[in-house]
């Protein structure tokens, strides 16, 4: 029986490592642009209490509520995966367990997001 050689790709390209990098990059940029807006709207506290309360009130609807959920999902992923990147770089066994750690990140992210979704959506839709 001859074994056909199928290139498995490199260790990195097209595998978990690359996809987690793509996700880390996209979430990083999304959080950055949000942060610019977040500082601008918070700055309205220096204009007047009414101006700040008006813009915050305009966020209190289901669409913005779901947007907030997505944003928290992005931050939580970027944070957990960032800790994984740090572990890969500084922990002796890091590169060896990078894939297992990614599933750890995804698992922790899912648990955190389920708990947060219940809390946040009950505020958004519960009035």
């Amino acid at each position: 029986m001859s074994k056909t050689l199928v290139p498995a790709g490199t260790l990195y390209r097209g595998r978990e490592g690359q996809w987690s990098w793509v996700a880390h990059r996209i979430t990083g940029v999304v959080i950055f642009f949000f942060l610019l807006v977040h500082v601008l709207d918070t700055s309205l506290v220096r204009v007047s209490p009414e101006a700040y309360d008006a813009v915050i009130a305009s966020y209190k609807n289901p669409i913005m509520g779901l947007g907030e959920l997505g944003l928290v999902a992005a931050i939580v992923f970027h944070a957990f995966n960032g800790l994984r990147v740090i572990a890969v770089d500084f922990w002796k066994q890091g590169p060896r367990y990078h894939r297992q750690m990614l599933w750890g990140v995804v698992g922790l992210w899912a648990v955190t997001m389920i708990a947060f979704s219940i809390r946040h959506l009950s505020h958004v839709f519960g009035g």
């Binding site: 506290v45 209490p49 700040y52 309360d53 915050i56 209190k60 509520g65 907030e68 928290v72 931050i75 944070a79 960032g82 800790l83 990147v85 740090i86 770089d89 500084f90 947060f116 809390r119 946040h120 505020h123 958004v124």
Partner: peptide, 30 residues
């Protein structure tokens, strides 16, 4: 890497106080 490690703590507490504790997001105003 350094700022990332510190930001985890800063941001998670920030999200907790503004979106989870008390009335959550509904409690945010001036």
């Amino acid at each position: 890497r350094l700022s990332g490690a510190i930001l985890v703590v800063l941001i998670f507490v920030h999200l907790w106080t503004s979106m989870v504790a008390g009335d959550g997001i509904n409690g945010v105003d001036f």
